[in-house]
Computed example of a mutant assay.
Amino acid sequence: MKNVKSNQETLELTAKEREIEQLQILLANYQLYYQNLRNFHWNVRGNSFFELHTKFEELYNDASDKVDEIAERILTLDGHPLGNFSDYVAISSIAEANSNCSGNEMVEQVIEAHNTIVLKVKDVIASANENDDEGTLDILPAYVSYLEKMNWMFKAYLK
């Protein structure tokens, strides 16, 4: 797969190239997260159907906006965003979700995905700092705040 390099090649990248690479991985994570949410939205069952069906839709709509924003940020930095799902699966830290489970188990998978994305956003922020990229630094902190708030709410839901 092109656009994502080996560890040795990563050491030789410029700050801008490292940032683009981290944004590609964030894009892949968001694409898997988005698809998992769609899966949960379609397949949730049980007493919590109405609230989780609606919440998963809210989350996948937000994720869709972020996918577009991340891809456009890559383009702004003169990169070429990945567009094939096979590329996303290859580099994402988020796996395809199992939707043959309870609503609570789906929520637990969402919490885990949020934690993974927050860590990757922090990696991108570090790369953006190294690259003196104020544009990316202006966008990404809000991602962290949103996901942390959602996790707090989901954890309260599970209690």
Rank of each mutant, 00 (worst) to 15 (best):
E51L: 10
F50E: 01
H114V: 01
H41A: 00
P141D: 04
N129Y: 03
I25T: 09
C101Q: 15
S64V: 00
F85M: 13
S92Q: 07
N47P: 09
G83D: 03
E134D: 15
G103N: 08
K66V: 10
A128L: 09
H53A: 04
A113P: 08
Y143C: 03
F85Q: 08
S102H: 07
V107Y: 06
D62M: 11
Q109Y: 08
T116N: 12
Q24V: 04
K55Q: 12
K155H: 11
S6D: 08
N104L: 01
L32K: 11
H41Q: 02
K16A: 10
D78V: 03
S127E: 14
W42T: 02
S6E: 07
M153D: 10
L75H: 10
N84L: 12
K55Y: 08
A113G: 12
D138Q: 11
Y146G: 04
L158K: 10
Q109P: 01
E19F: 02
D132S: 15
L158R: 11
K2P: 15
F50A: 07
M106P: 12
Y33M: 12
A28M: 06
K149L: 05
E12L: 15
D68R: 11
K159T: 12
D62A: 14
A71F: 08
Y157A: 03
N36V: 09
I111Y: 02
I70N: 06
E19A: 05
L75Q: 14
E148S: 05
V144G: 01
L13F: 00
K149C: 01
W42R: 01
Y88W: 14
L119E: 07
D87Q: 14
E134M: 13
I94H: 09
V4W: 05
K120M: 10
I25V: 12
H53P: 02
Y146H: 10
L37T: 03
L52W: 03
H41D: 04
N47F: 08
G46V: 08
G83C: 05
F50W: 08
F49W: 13
L137R: 14
A90I: 02
